[in-house]
Simulated assay, not measured.
Amino acid sequence: MIRKRNSSKDDAAIVRLTQSELLPFTRLTRPEAEVKLPDLQKRFALGKTYVAESGAQAVAGFVSLQVSGTNLFVDMLAVDSKFHGRGLGTLLMQRAEEYGRSKKCRLSSLYVDRVNQKAISFYQNKGYETTRYLPKLGVQLMQKRL
């Protein structure tokens, strides 16, 4: 089930997922990178965050979004590795793109760590294309028309 984030109920799990599923890739190009709850909460305040539940695990994944004009920005997407291959990432992306369309967005953009080939393939399978590489950050900008 996909639902809106509940800060008091979900944020500790979201920090854990960010640290275990996203940060290891980021640290390959930026070893100093850290994840702290107050920083994430500031990012979440800029848009919407949805979580995926799976059975007894209240937060098996999440997606954080921001809208600027007609552009949807997928800030972060993470799914607990125990749940990879079960379609939760796809459901989260579908919800993200639905939200973008409801806000009249015409383009969806996201950054993905260049070394995270599994994520790059995931986004390519969803119709995203690499449009730019930012070597200083070690990330690719991927975009898709909505």
Score class of each variant (00 low, 15 high):
1 M>N: 09
2 I>V: 14
5 R>T: 12
5 R>Y: 15
7 S>F: 12
7 S>M: 14
8 S>H: 12
8 S>D: 15
8 S>L: 14
9 K>E: 15
10 D>F: 10
10 D>K: 12
11 D>R: 10
11 D>M: 15
12 A>Q: 08
13 A>M: 09
13 A>Y: 02
14 I>F: 08
16 R>G: 06
20 S>R: 03
21 E>C: 03
21 E>D: 00
22 L>K: 00
23 L>M: 07
24 P>C: 14
25 F>R: 04
25 F>S: 11
25 F>W: 09
26 T>Y: 05
26 T>L: 06
27 R>S: 06
30 R>K: 06
30 R>H: 05
30 R>W: 02
31 P>R: 06
31 P>N: 08
33 A>W: 05
34 E>S: 14
34 E>G: 09
35 V>E: 13
37 L>I: 07
37 L>A: 08
37 L>D: 05
38 P>T: 09
39 D>R: 03
40 L>H: 08
41 Q>T: 09
41 Q>L: 15
41 Q>I: 10
41 Q>P: 00
42 K>C: 11
42 K>A: 15
42 K>P: 06
42 K>F: 12
43 R>F: 13
44 F>C: 08
45 A>D: 14
45 A>V: 06
46 L>G: 12
46 L>M: 15
47 G>W: 03
50 Y>N: 01
50 Y>P: 00
51 V>Q: 07
53 E>N: 07
54 S>I: 01
55 G>P: 03
56 A>K: 15
57 Q>G: 00
59 V>C: 11
59 V>Q: 09
60 A>M: 02
60 A>R: 01
60 A>E: 01
61 G>V: 02
61 G>M: 03
62 F>V: 03
62 F>L: 06
63 V>A: 09
64 S>Y: 03
64 S>E: 11
65 L>D: 01
68 S>P: 07
69 G>V: 08
69 G>D: 02
69 G>L: 10
70 T>N: 11
71 N>L: 13
75 D>R: 07
77 L>P: 01
77 L>C: 07
78 A>R: 00
80 D>P: 00
80 D>T: 00
81 S>P: 00
81 S>I: 01
83 F>Y: 10
84 H>N: 07
84 H>L: 08
85 G>V: 03
86 R>E: 10
88 L>D: 01
90 T>K: 15
93 M>P: 04
94 Q>Y: 04
94 Q>F: 02
95 R>P: 01
97 E>W: 07
98 E>W: 07
99 Y>R: 03
100 G>Y: 05
100 G>L: 06
102 S>L: 06
102 S>C: 07
103 K>E: 05
103 K>Y: 04
105 C>S: 11
106 R>L: 13
106 R>N: 13
108 S>H: 01
108 S>F: 02
109 S>F: 01
110 L>T: 07
110 L>Q: 02
110 L>A: 01
111 Y>L: 11
112 V>T: 13
114 R>L: 11
114 R>V: 11
114 R>F: 10
115 V>D: 03
116 N>Y: 07
118 K>W: 10
120 I>P: 02
120 I>K: 13
121 S>L: 10
121 S>E: 12
123 Y>M: 04
124 Q>P: 12
124 Q>V: 05
125 N>S: 12
126 K>R: 12
129 E>L: 05
129 E>H: 09
131 T>C: 05
133 Y>A: 10
133 Y>F: 12
134 L>T: 10
135 P>I: 14
136 K>F: 07
137 L>Q: 13
137 L>K: 13
138 G>E: 04
139 V>D: 09
139 V>H: 02
140 Q>C: 13
141 L>V: 11
141 L>A: 04
146 L>R: 04
